[in-house]
Amino acid sequence: MERTIRVLVAKPGLDGHDRGAKVIARALRDAGMEVVYTGLRQTPEQIVQAAVQEDVDVIAMSILSGAHNHLFPRVTELLAEKKVDDVLVIGGGVIPEGDYEFLKSKGIAAIFGPGTPTGTTVEFIRTHLKR
C-alpha cells in the first residue's frame, strides 16, 4: 500500500493572513494527505523543528507580508544545517513572479501564487516528493 504523504503547513513570520494556509491544509487533507498546521507566527527555527519532529515529507509555507525573500531561504538553510535533504519545500502567497527564480535557487521547489487551484498543488506534491 502507498504510504500517506505527511505535510507541514506553516505560517512563517508575523503575517496573520491564514485563509490560504487553512484552505490548502484542508485541500491536502481531502486529497488523502496527513496535514499538520503550525498556526501563526512561526520562526524558521520552529518550522524546521516541527518538520523534523513530525517527520514530514513536505513543508508548505504561506506568506502574504512580503517577507518571503528573508524567511523562506532561512528554512532551507536550516534544513541543510540539519542535513535534512529529503523534504520538499514549497511556498505560496502574495509573491511577485520576479522573486520566483531567487526562491527556487534557494531550494524552494515551487511557488503557488494567488488563484492557483488547490489541485495543482496536490499534483505537484505527488510528483515531486523527495522520498
Binding site: G13, S65, A67
Partner: peptide, 8 residues
C-alpha cells in the same frame, strides 16, 4: 522576530 518584516 521583526527581521524581514520591517516596513513591508
Amino acid at each position: 522576530l521583526s527581521a524581514g518584516e520591517v516596513g513591508k
